[in-house]
Amino acid sequence: MRRLALPALALLACAALAQPGEERVVQAFKLLAQLSAEGVDVSSQVARLNRALELYRENRTSEADALVAGVVRDSEALELQLPYYRLARWVGLGASVAALAAAPPLFYYLFPRLYALAWAYARRRWLVRRVGRRGAGR
């Protein structure tokens, strides 16, 4: 079997081996990771960071730096709102769970009454006529 001369093989990448600007993007990503773990929507920031990575690869460093700086600024603003976001999320979740948990007993209590009301409403024009005493006419 022909022995492969792998050590003699070499690949040249068409792109640069080291991802340019990666360190700056990593710093912004750390903020995004924290926000994302809390459930904050960071899709806009993700798209901008990916664009920044492209710009770094094209050596358009100043544009990329501006994008990354904008993402960091937005992420820091979101980070400040994180306690309120967290509180609103838990309050919303609690309210939803409470509403769903209350549905069965409310249904059990209200449904027969509403049904009786609807039944009576549907027959609101009915007349009750006495046809005589029980056993009358015998």
């Binding site: 070499a10 040249l12 990575l53």
Partner: peptide, 29 residues
């Protein structure tokens, strides 16, 4: 010999184009 970073949100995917040049010959690389 080549690397490319990408940031993806949960549930997202990406298809990254790759272009490499092999300088020397060989089998079953």
């Amino acid at each position: 010999v080549w690397e490319r970073a990408v940031i993806l949100g949960h549930g997202q995917n990406a298809t990254i184009p790759v272009q490499l040049v092999v300088e020397r010959e060989g089998l079953n690389v």
